[in-house]
C-alpha cells in the first residue's frame, strides 16, 4: 500500500448540485497533504466521504487500502478525524470522552492520551459544553492521536485557534508524522500553516481537482516574473505565452504569473526582448489566488488573452 488515500471518480451531489465531481486523488503514505480550495469547493464533503459520514453517489475511494463503501466501520479503527466543528457529547466531561474513545478504538493508547492532554493543558473534569471551540478542537486532536492513527483527517483544524495553540497543534502533528510515519490529510484556509508543514498540496474547485503537486514542484513550476522593456512591450505576444495565468501591466513594466519550468519559459522570454527579467517571490497564497483568478473566481476585474 503506497497510497494512504485514493479516490477514483468520486462524486457526490446535494439536491442535484455536484459538491464533489469525479474526483481523482492520491495521497502517499507518510505525507502531510494539504487540501485547499475556496469556500464551497467540496473540501468538507470530500473529507466526510473519506470518514464514512456521508456516502458517495458514484465512484469509489480507498483509505489505508480499504474501500470507503465498506459498512462495518473497521476501517476507522486507525483513522483519526478532527472536524471543523467537533461533535461531542456536551454533557460528558473530557475524561468521559476519553473513556468512550478507549472503548471504541482497539489501539487506544492511554499514555499518549495523558501526555497530549497535559501538553495542551486541558481541563479534565470540565464538561464539553463549557469548553471553547479551540479547546474542543484540542480534545478532538488528543483523541484522534490517542487511537494510534495511521491516517489523520483534519478539516480546517487551525481555524479559530490562538497563535500559541496553533503552533503547538502543528508541532504535535509534525512530531506524529516524524515519529510514527502517520499520514496527515488536512484542509485549511490558512495557507501559511500549510506552506510550512505540508509537503503535498492539492487544490479543488467546484468539486474538481485544479492541481495536485508536491509543494516543491508547485514552487518550481509557477513563477511570477517582472519584465521591464525599453521599447513598447509586445502585449499580444506576452498574453499568448503558454501557461500564462496572470498578466498585469503598468507602463513598460509587465508582471506575469506563469506555469512551467524556468528552463522552458526562458527561451520564450528571450524572443520578446525584455531589458530585464526579475523573478519575484511567489508564496502559496499568491499561487492559489492566481489559479483561482484564472478560473474566474474572485471579485477583481481581470483580463488576459485566451
Amino acid at each position: 500500500m503506497e497510497q494512504a488515500i485514493e479516490t477514483k471518480a468520486l462524486s457526490k451531489s446535494f439536491d442535484g448540485l455536484p459538491a464533489v465531481d469525479k474526483l481523482y486523488l492520491s495521497v502517499p503514505v507518510g505525507s502531510i497533504f494539504g487540501l485547499i480550495g475556496p469556500n464551497g469547493a467540496g473540501k468538507s464533503t470530500l473529507i466526510q466521504m473519506l470518514t464514512g459520514i456521508i456516502r458517495p453517489d458514484s465512484g469509489d475511494g480507498f483509505i489505508l487500502g480499504q474501500s470507503i463503501r465498506k459498512r462495518d466501520g473497521s476501517i476507522r479503527n486507525r483513522v483519526g478525524y478532527v472536524p471543523d466543528v467537533p461533535v461531542m457529547y456536551p454533557g460528558f466531561t473530557v475524561t468521559e470522552m476519553y473513556r468512550l474513545g478507549s472503548k471504541l478504538y482497539p489501539f487506544w493508547d492511554w499514555e499518549r492520551c495523558r501526555d497530549l492532554h497535559q501538553g495542551f493543558q486541558l481541563p479534565e473534569g470540565q464538561r464539553i459544553r463549557n469548553l471553547s471551540r479551540g479547546q474542543k478542537v484540542q480534545v478532538a486532536l488528543v483523541m484522534a492521536l490517542a487511537l494510534r492513527p495511521q491516517l489523520l483527517l483534519l478539516d480546517e483544524p487551525t481555524a479559530g485557534l490562538d497563535p500559541v495553540v496553533r503552533r503547538a497543534f502543528l508541532q504535535t502533528i509534525i512530531e506524529e508524522v516524524a515519529g510514527q510515519g502517520t499520514t496527515v490529510f488536512y484542509s485549511s484556509h490558512n495557507l501559511n500553516d500549510l506552506e510550512q508543514s505540508a509537503d503535498h498540496i492539492a487544490a479543488i474547485y467546484r468539486g474538481r481537482m485544479l492541481f495536485s503537486h508536491t509543494l516543491d514542484e508547485l514552487k518550481e513550476s509557477v513563477h511570477r516574473l517582472q519584465l521591464i522593456f525599453t521599447g513598447e512591450p509586445q502585449e499580444d505576444v506576452i498574453k499568448a505565452l503558454p501557461g500564462l495565468i496572470e498578466y498585469q501591466q503598468s507602463g513598460r513594466v509587465i508582471t506575469i504569473t506563469i506555469t512551467g519550468h524556468l528552463d522552458s519559459i526562458s527561451p520564450r522570454l528571450v524572443e520578446i526582448e525584455p531589458e530585464l527579467v526579475k523573478e519575484l517571490n511567489l508564496d502559496l497564497e499568491s499561487i492559489f489566488v492566481a489559479f483561482m483568478k484564472a478560473q474566474g473566481y474572485g471579485f477583481e476585474r481581470w483580463e488576459v488573452g485566451s
Binding site: 507518510g30 505525507s31 502531510i32 503552533r167 502543528l170 508541532q171 509534525i174 512530531e175 508524522v177 516524524a178 510550512q196 508543514s197 505540508a198 509537503d199 509543494l215 516543491d216
Partner: peptide
Amino acid sequence: AVELSLNPNT
C-alpha cells in the same frame, strides 16, 4: 523537523 516546525520529508 520538530524544532523548526517543518515537514520531516522536507
